[in-house]
């Protein structure tokens, strides 16, 4: 059955990130000058404006910075998921990622809860980094 939810719009800035995801790797830009690890991908470092980067792979572990439980359905693709959890996860490497918490009920989610990445292959080209409670 065709995938019914919105897909990411790949562009020159985020291509490396989503290609990493396809290989189940969470990749972030690390500033070659000040070492700041950033997200979303950008041309210059928001801390020091340096243009040089290396891409690092995250270990995929972090904690919930904040979260929201969607009871309302804004898009038909999410009707069967509601209530579902949208969260901002802070990775150990520093950046925060908007994502979903899966593998537990919404009542079990809390701020600062440790979580780990889990991959959802939604099309042959796109895999989404979701997070579940760390065991």
């Amino acid at each position: 059955m065709a995938y019914k939810k919105p897909l990411p719009r790949i562009n020159g800035d985020n291509r490396e990130f989503w290609e990493g995801c396809r290989n189940h790797e969470l990749k972030f830009q690390k500033c070659a000058s000040c070492g700041h690890v950033r997200f979303p991908p950008s041309l210059v470092c928001p801390r020091c404006l340096c243009r040089d980067v290396e891409w690092i792979a995250s270990a995929g572990a972090g904690k919930v910075y904040t979260y929201a439980v969607y009871h309302a359905v804004y898009h038909e693709g999410f009707r069967e998921d509601a209530p579902y959890v949208v969260a901002v996860v802070e990775l150990q490497e520093g950046p925060r990622l908007l994502t979903n918490i899966v593998g537990c009920s919404p009542d079990e989610v809390s701020c600062e809860m440790p979580v780990s990445v889990v991959w959802e292959d939604v099309t042959p080209d796109i895999s989404l980094p979701l997070f579940r409670p760390s065991v």
Binding site: K5, P6, L7, P8, R9, N14, A68, Y70, A72, Y74, H75, G77, F78, D81, Y84, V86, L98, T99, N100, L128
Partner: peptide
């Protein structure tokens, strides 16, 4: 934008 991928829409969220 791409927040919609994770079902995050609008201002309430």
């Amino acid at each position: 934008g791409d927040d919609a991928v994770f079902g995050h829409f609008g201002a309430t969220g």
